[in-house]
Lab assay of single mutants.
Amino acid sequence: KAKLLVLLYAFVATDADTICIGYHANNSTDTVDTILEKNVAVTHSVNLLEDSHNGKLCKLKGIAPLQLGKCNITGWLLGNPECDSLLPARSWSYIVETPNSENGACYPGDLIDYEELREQLSSVSSLERFEIFPKESSWPNHTFNGVTVSCSHRGKSSFYRNLLWLTKKGDSYPKLTNSYVNNKGKEVLVLWGVHHPSSSDEQQSLYSNGNAYVSVASSNYNRRFTPEIAARPKVRDQHGRMNYYWTLLEPGDTIIFEATGNLIAPWYAFALSRGFESGIITSNASMHECNTKCQTPQGAINSNLPFQNIHPVTIGECPKYVRSTKLRMVTGLRNIPSIQYRGLFGAIAGFIEGGWTGMIDGWYGYHHQNEQGSGYAADQKSTQNAINGITNKVNSVIEKMNTQFTAVGKEFNNLEKRMENLNKKVDDGFLDIWTYNAELLVLLENERTLDFHDLNVKNLYEKVKSQLKNNAKEIGNGCFEFYHKCDNECMESVRNGTYDYPKYSEESKLNR
């Protein structure tokens, strides 16, 4: 008799109507990190870190770059004969040098303040090359056809396309004075040089004057150069050297050249137009028929994500570079809930034993079982409120962090190594801060989002509990077992918050 009662009780308990509160689960393989956990499985997430590029040089917003090819900045601007293909260059979106560009200054020497000139050019998007001192009329008392084997072109001695090597005419090199007034309405880049012979005999042979000088002056520039005559090792078949100089001439300003020898005179100059998204990159990537809004030396990035880990040097509207390998923000729920887990921000989770793959029309909802059958029903209101809140948060985070910009490298010469090392340390410090901030932001927001979901499920549970009161009992896994019969209409009233407690209280009292 006792065995019969136990079996009867078990049958009745199993047959009781139930309603459970749960949440969506799926077959997603997404994982995120939080402050407290690593690799948390979630139903949905968004990636904030771009880690792919196309490996190509592309047009930037429809404008092609200027590819210097086998030449570098120095060779292009001075007019190395091997860089003749660059003479027609007028406009570009950015400038590309190759790491091993070999054609710079063909006659050995240095372009002074080269690093600063590169910085200036990094904001130039177009130029006009014009004859600042016409070759045939500007130097009537001097020979202007100086050439050298060091600047050979097609097997013949030649010289820079933008400079003139002035030497004596006959047996004399009379003092020369020439000036140019900038009437271009924009900055003009003027380049010139000073020749330093290897011996007094060479000085006399070329310029006749043993104590020659070169003077260059404008409103913002004033220097006097004296040739340094000295024996030097042979470089590119030359014992002599040429140093090259430049200045930016403001609109309306005048530049005056005065010399008694050794002047490498300007022939062509450049009127410059600035462009905020221009820059110089060093890259071996090849040019393709493609378009982008962000270019790196590795390749083009076409992404609206706020961060990238491809390269710190970028041109155009680019994500911020960070050292992170993963920045994924959760938008959905835990896919593998932890039992009795309390989140960092106070939300209680884990009283549900598992997510439901059968509930596909919402994030949170119900599963019921009664004599009429069983089924899932999503709670659309709480789901939609959660979707709206999380979507707004993700968009806000992306908008705040998605300050796209150009980031170019800084140039230092060989004598500025300590400054370069200090600059690298400062840049590394800023990069570490950006990386830390980005990672911390994602970790915190992921923790908040998961706790937010847990709290929403808990609130749904409490909503049902407050309606049923003692007409049902909690069975410990997020479910309630009714003390009365609850048909589909009754189940719907529980879900929509209109459950009639008094209607079922007498039946429940008897069954309790």
Rank of each mutant, 00 (worst) to 15 (best):
2 A>H: 05
2 A>D: 10
4 L>A: 15
5 L>W: 15
6 V>W: 12
8 L>I: 12
9 Y>M: 07
10 A>G: 05
13 A>I: 08
15 D>A: 14
15 D>M: 14
17 D>L: 02
22 G>M: 05
26 N>T: 07
26 N>R: 13
27 N>W: 12
27 N>R: 01
31 T>P: 05
32 V>Q: 06
34 T>Y: 07
36 L>N: 04
37 E>Y: 06
42 V>Y: 11
42 V>H: 14
47 N>Q: 07
48 L>D: 04
51 D>A: 14
56 K>R: 14
59 K>C: 02
59 K>L: 12
62 G>S: 12
67 Q>G: 09
67 Q>S: 10
70 K>C: 04
75 G>H: 02
77 L>F: 09
80 N>C: 05
82 E>W: 03
88 P>Y: 14
91 S>R: 07
92 W>C: 15
92 W>N: 07
94 Y>H: 08
95 I>P: 03
95 I>C: 10
99 P>R: 12
100 N>Q: 06
104 G>N: 06
108 P>W: 13
110 D>F: 03
111 L>M: 15
118 R>W: 12
132 I>R: 04
133 F>H: 05
133 F>Q: 03
133 F>A: 09
135 K>Q: 12
141 N>W: 09
142 H>Y: 15
143 T>N: 01
144 F>V: 08
145 N>A: 14
145 N>Q: 15
146 G>I: 13
147 V>S: 14
147 V>P: 03
151 C>T: 07
152 S>C: 00
158 S>M: 05
163 L>P: 03
164 L>Y: 12
165 W>S: 09
166 L>A: 05
172 S>C: 00
175 K>L: 14
181 V>I: 13
186 K>Q: 14
186 K>H: 06
187 E>C: 05
189 L>T: 04
190 V>Q: 03
190 V>G: 00
191 L>R: 03
191 L>A: 08
192 W>P: 02
195 H>L: 02
198 S>N: 05
204 Q>P: 00
208 S>P: 12
208 S>N: 13
208 S>F: 11
210 G>V: 04
211 N>L: 11
216 V>S: 02
216 V>H: 11
216 V>A: 04
217 A>F: 12
220 N>D: 15
220 N>G: 13
223 R>Y: 09
225 F>D: 08
226 T>S: 10
228 E>H: 13
229 I>G: 00
230 A>H: 13
237 D>H: 10
238 Q>N: 11
238 Q>C: 03
239 H>P: 13
241 R>T: 09
241 R>D: 08
245 Y>R: 00
247 T>A: 12
248 L>V: 15
250 E>D: 10
252 G>L: 12
252 G>S: 12
252 G>H: 13
252 G>M: 15
255 I>L: 15
266 P>A: 03
267 W>D: 00
267 W>A: 10
268 Y>P: 00
269 A>V: 02
269 A>R: 00
269 A>L: 01
270 F>D: 03
272 L>H: 00
275 G>Q: 12
277 E>S: 12
278 S>D: 04
281 I>S: 05
282 T>K: 09
